[in-house]
Structure formats: structure tokens, C-alpha cells
Simulated scan of single mutants.
Amino acid sequence: MIDRVEEAGPSGLASALMKKGALTSDWLPAFHAVPRHLFLPDAIWPGRAGMNRQTDRVLRSEEPEVWWSAVYRDAPITTQWDDGAHTGPGKGKVPSSSNSMPTMVFSMLDALNVGTGHKVLEIGTGTGWNAALLSHRVGAENVVTVEVDEASARDARGRLKAAGFEPLTVVGDGADGYAEGAPYDRVIATCSIGSVPRQWVAQTKPGGLIVAPWGPTYGGEAVARLAVAEDGTATGWFLGSSAFMRLRAQRTERKHVRAYLKGRKWPADGRQSMTSVSPDSVGDWPVMFAIGVQVPDAFPWAETYDDGSYTLWLRDTAVTSWATVDFVPRRKEFEVYQSGPRDLWDEVVAAYLWWDEQGRPGFERFGLTVDGDGERAWLDRPDNPVPVVAEP
């Protein structure tokens, strides 16, 4: 039974990906030469298409058909929790490594526009599947892949070798790239970033491309495709929504609300007001992205209740300011409390209204430039930077 499932699995997934337009004909040989199942461990936590919600652990040794079905579904698969501290059963606190959703894998590879002879730097080896696909395309001798987690790197190296590929697998901080192998024609990240590491730009040849998921602290994330110029700058468009685990060097520690209340009960010293902008209006991925590039170093969290109401908490990373907005179904005004030097809800509302005035743009109208002055998001053209509502 399992053999028949295994025979049909890759073909069925390939057909689905091609219908979506994610898998193009030029990547089809790599897809078939590098089966996904060769790059997944015995223990996996299957996800759902378009979502980051994992199901409980599945062991191939105990449930081979369930495992196989998950592998050849167009959905992400978590392979590590809490930097390896949790192995199951059940789920850990924070997913820390995965095998990405196939649609996203092949969409990003297509955006990379990689060809024969190109030298490629991959940030985030993970399970090794993406590195194997690249190795099949350009030759393993032209692929360098960097992984911060020693155990993941070791396991991926073993899977790659077993599949017939031996790219250079480096254990190190992906934020540093790998200068010894530079310059590269292409750089691709399989983890998200909130700021493009300058080493990636410096290690990319003029005319080369960087493809990486980029997202602000607030939330919202999209794949950026940046072209590196002769002067060492990089600029380009966002291609579409994404949701990746953060580069470990750029993770942020988010303090509990009690750290903001300083031992007092909510609403503590919060300043009370009312708002006609619903918290529901600012919760979708594209608007979160637009808010995030305008409101630096702040993030949301929703405390939900059984009756359908919830409290939207806003906090800054400096642990100086917080705000709450109480959502109640069918109401047109919502109670707000704000505390600290930043009026975080006012900042979010200003950012939301700007986004609304621009015609509620999706990711495809935004771009990013990295240069000597830092990096900045822009709308429609590079000389039209997205405004920053307030400096942190």
C-alpha cells in the first residue's frame, strides 16, 4: 500500500504546483530528481497550506501513510521546536526549523532567476531540500549553504550526500554570509529578516540578486527581490506574502505585558480615550506590513475571549510604552488605553489611514532599498519612501 502511495505522491504534488504556476517547467527536472521525502526526518509536525499552525507530531516509523501524505501536500512542515530542546510528543513553544511550503520554495527559486554556472549562497540550510534543488540546477560545487544549528547542518549534510549532492555546508551565523566563497551571483534566504545584512550585499556581485523574506517587527512579511548595483546598493520589489521563521541573529525577545505594567493592574497609568478605527481593520497581513514599515519597533498581540471580543495589545521593544484597544462585536467605537512616551495606538491609526489613502496597496506596490544611509521601504517607486510615523 505504502509503495503505491509513494509512487503517486511526487507526481500529484508536481501537478498541483504546476497548476498553481509555482513550479515551472525548467524546475520540474530538479523537483523529480530531488524528492522531498529524502529531506525530512522521522518526526515531523505538518502544517496547513498558507498557515503557520502545526498539527501534532507524526512519526514515520509509527504512521508511515500519514507521514507520506503530509510530505506530498503543499504545506510547510515543522522539523524542530525551541532550537531542538523539544522533540515531542506534542508541540513545543516556538518552531525553529522547517521544510517550507513547496509553493513558496519554487516561487522563490523562480524569482532567483538562477542559471548554469551561477554561484549561489543559501542562508538557512534547514533540512537540505532547497540546497539540493539548487545543487541539481547549478552544480553542487557552485552552492554554499549556511546553517546556524549544528545538528540541523549535520543532518542536512547527511541527507544531501545520500541524495548525491555535496555542496559546501557551513555551520555559522547566516547574517555573516560566507565571505570565503564570495562573490556570489545569487543569494537566497530560507528564513525571514527585518533588516538586510550588509554582508549579503557586499558578497553579491554587481548585477546579482538577493531573494529573501522581509518583514517589520510589527508583522506582515513578503519576499523581497533585490538587485545589487555597481555602487554596492541593492533595491527591488516585494513579490508577495510570506511567513518564515526569523534569522536567529535577528530574533527579538518580547517581554510579557507584566513588564510594561510594572507590577500594577491594567489599566495602570494608561490614558483613556475612544477610537472609531476597529482593531479588526489593522489585523490582516498586508496592512500589518504597511503599519510595520511606518511604526518601528512595536508589535501587537491579541488577548481573546469566549464571547468573540478581544483586547489588542500594542507594545514597544524598548519596554517603555504600551496600548490596549478593546474590540467588541457590533460596536462602532472602541475603548483605548495608552501609556508611556509613545502613543502606540495613535501611531498605528496614522499608519493605517496613510495606507487607506494610498488605495490600500498590496505587497506588489512596495519595494525596498538598501544603501549607505540604511534601508527604507518605498511605495510605487524608489524615490517615494514610506513615511515613518514616529521615531522609537
Rank of each mutant, 00 (worst) to 15 (best):
P385K: 11
P267N: 09
D371T: 07
L160C: 14
L168Y: 03
R186Q: 05
R154A: 13
A162M: 06
Y178S: 02
A16F: 02
V277M: 09
V211S: 12
A229M: 11
G208W: 04
R376Y: 14
E253S: 14
D326R: 15
L247H: 08
Y310K: 15
L40N: 12
V146Y: 06
F31W: 14
D373W: 06
E303D: 15
S276T: 06
W68S: 00
A131E: 01
A22V: 01
N52E: 04
E122L: 05
C191V: 15
R330A: 14
T79V: 11
P167W: 07
R48S: 15
T217R: 14
E335P: 03
W378N: 04
V201G: 03
W67T: 06
Q54I: 01
G128V: 12
M274L: 15
V201T: 05
E347T: 01
T304R: 03
F299A: 04
V211E: 13
S309N: 05
E7S: 08
A43P: 02
L160R: 14
D371F: 06
G47R: 07
Q54V: 01
V325Q: 05
T369D: 05
T369W: 07
A302Q: 12
A140Q: 14
E147C: 04
F244A: 03
H136E: 07
S242C: 09
E6C: 08
R60C: 05
R225W: 00
K161T: 12
C191A: 15
S152Q: 11
K255T: 04
K161C: 03
E375Y: 09
H32L: 12
A182I: 11
L109Y: 09
V201Q: 06
E364K: 10
T78E: 10
V328R: 15
P341D: 13
E303M: 11
E63K: 15
E63W: 03
V71T: 15
